[in-house]
Design a protein around this nucleic acid. Structure first.
Lengths: 196, 196
DNA sequence: GCAATTATTGACCGTGCGGTCCACCAAGCG
DNA sequence: CGCTTGGTGGACCGCACGGTCAATAATTGC
């Protein structure tokens, strides 16, 4: 055998992901990636391929962990409607308001690259569809539990909730302060997910 | 006096704006700008300053005309609540689905640049505040006309409607087809702006 | 029609980028 | 121990980018 890797692959991917998250794709140079990863250019290329492939790996890491959080969030509340409220409010409940500051990596990437990069567009669609399906399931449960009217089909409602959530993320990126953002989130939650 | 300009400044700004709109800031090269404007590099610099200043001018042009459309839209409907419905549905009613395809230039710019460019962030806040104020005025009118409940203050409601609209724009950028997007827009409009 | 002034053009420049390559080095095996 | 294998790091490359500049053209005032 030969010399083994001297770094933790997942740790590197997470560092790279944070860099792309903070600065975006184009604004992140290879030098930045070398700095945050602690690796040399050659090692980075040998292990992960070029900048684009590395980005896709980081993006996938993000969507995987976000998807995990989402499942957790939807499963944890005793009543499905409360889980949906938490889903809408997620951008402002994130500790430290991190989501409000740097937004959602998937959304950032969609805005920056989806029109020109088919891989990113595909990942965006994949993530969007998976999220819609998960949320729709909870909407159905909330309807079964009698907490949500049956006048809208679950998938439609899920898309509306997702749009509302992403709209909040956008408002956060305009620098809106967290209290105002929270109030807006509540307004949306109240209107879209009424008490009965 | 000396030699006069041989081009229409506004026409150039609009061409430049469309280029930034289609491709984003970083992905637009000076060569692209020279091509779409029909001017030489020197003329572009002499007339508008560097790429960043040119971008800010194009962005301002966009927000000015969008603001004009918004005023028109809000003023044209006989009942304020219908104007608000049109506001939420605007991203899908845009002829040709242009808004759904390339989104909103201000939103695109916010996502790409707001974290690193104070000028863009300032413009985003300015636009967001102006839009909120205009929409809030219509919300107040709709309440006066008895079409909207008085349980939420107009500014809060305006922010919620703006978030919903921008959420729709985001969904459009993930490549969601226009029919599905329209259905989602309707769901949001129905829930946020009920008939009575 | 000449002088003064400003727009126009495109060749040119320095820089920083993404990407490559190779000399060096650590680990396992006989 | 030395040989083989593959990881490592940084010097290096070509290129495309944003930006500059000097020669030239067009217009007006006198």
């Amino acid at each position: 055998m030969a010399r083994p890797r001297q770094f933790d692959e997942e740790q590197v991917i997470r560092a790279v992901r944070d860099q792309f998250w903070d600065a975006g794709y184009a604004a992140t140079s290879l030098e930045d990636l070398v700095r945050v990863s602690g690796l040399g250019k050659g090692s980075l290329y040998g292990a992960f391929g070029d900048k684009h492939r590395l980005f896709l790996k980081a993006l996938r890491e993000y969507t995987d962990t976000s998807g995990g959080y989402l499942r957790e969030m939807l499963a944890s509340a005793p009543r499905a409607v409360d889980a949906l409220r938490a889903f809408v409010m997620a951008p402002v409940n994130d500790p430290g308001g991190a989501a409000a500051r740097r937004g959602c990596l998937m959304a950032n990437s969609t805005y920056e690259l989806a029109t020109s990069d088919p891989d990113v567009l595909a990942e965006a669609r994949r993530t969007y569809e998976a999220t819609t399906a998960l949320v729709a399931e909870s909407v159905g449960r909330a309807q079964d539990e009698g907490d949500l009217p049956r006048d809208v089909n679950p998938v439609e409602m899920a898309r509306a909730l997702l749009a509302a959530q992403q709209g909040l993320v956008f408002m956060g990126r305009t620098g809106l302060d967290i209290d105002t953002l929270t109030a807006t989130a509540r307004t949306l939650a109240v209107k879209l997910l009424p008490d009965a």
